[in-house]
């Protein structure tokens, strides 16, 4: 199985280069942002907006948090997509070769999941180091809050990654784009079921065509959601673990039905 993980990582070599540059970019931009927010132009802009009553101090803080959250999720997002592996395998006809290996089908499927989790582990480790640095430089978020956001983000992308593997196995070679679409649709559906009101409010805030009281109500939902991401990260992690186990089980059943032609 280790051999297959090595092969998958070789397939993701190009993607790893992108991840490497996104990590470097994230580190540089995050540190610059934090320094600027504390001592530079962003801090000055924030002060002016506060003086002009354009924003409250909470808004300024939350804006900073949002920027950091987005930056922190970049390295994780860069490794969440395994379609390149499926495409490369299909193009080479590797499934036939893999089927001749002394590896049971369930382990071949597990190798796919292990690859994606190995990549996640790598990016979460990098983000953890970054979180330690940023939390020392800024008072926007504590290290614990940073980690909550990182783990929640990694969990959501982990759910995407594991569902994507299932759909790629189910649909077969050449249908990777459909697998991505189905995965996204399923995730949106799941999110709607899990928090319809939250998403509705998020949408209202984004569209900005709604009356002020409703917007304020919506804004509070945004911050509540952010608080949920920061504080209740374990809900996301638990959901990701459950969905990954379910996706793995379904993937094995599908792959066995297809006699390992995955």
């Amino acid at each position: 199985m280790k051999g297959l993980i090595i092969k998958d990582i070789l397939c993701l070599r190009k993607q790893l280069h992108i991840t490497f540059f996104s990590v470097i970019g994230t580190v540089v931009i995050s540190v610059m942002f934090v320094l600027s927010a504390r001592f530079g132009n962003i801090a000055m802009a924030g002060e002016r907006m506060l003086a002009d009553n354009q924003m409250t101090s909470t808004d300024v803080k939350n804006l900073g948090v949002q920027v950091l959250v987005l930056l922190m999720l970049l390295p994780i997002a860069a490794v969440g997509d395994m379609t390149n592996v499926f495409t490369a395998d299909g193009k080479a006809g590797f499934d036939k070769v893999a089927a001749s290996f002394p590896i049971p089908i369930r382990q071949r499927v597990l190798a796919r999941f292990m690859t994606i989790f190995a990549m996640f582990f790598m990016s979460v480790t990098i983000d953890t180091i970054l979180a330690a640095v940023l939390s020392a430089l800024t008072d926007l978020l504590s290290f614990g809050e940073f980690m909550g956001i990182i783990l929640s983000g990694a969990s959501v992308i982990g759910i995407y990654g594991s569902l994507l593997i299932f759909f790629c196995i189910l649909l077969g070679f050449g249908k990777e784009s459909y697998a991505q679409i189905f995965t996204l649709l399923l995730m949106i559906l799941m999110a709607f079921i899990a928090g319809f009101r939250t998403i509705k409010m998020l949408w209202l805030v984004i569209t900005e065509v709604i009356p002020e009281p409703v917007r304020e109500d919506g804004s509070s939902f945004v911050w509540n959601t952010l608080d949920l991401v920061k504080d209740k990260w374990w809900i996301f992690v638990l959901t990701a673990v459950c969905i990954s186990i379910l996706s793995y089980t379904l993937s094995v059943l599908t792959a066995e039905r297809k006699r390992g032609v995955i």
Binding site: G93, F94, K96
Partner: peptide, 9 residues
């Protein structure tokens, strides 16, 4: 196999 099956890279 008739076709190689290993990735080109």
């Amino acid at each position: 196999f008739a076709e190689m099956g290993f990735h080109e890279f």
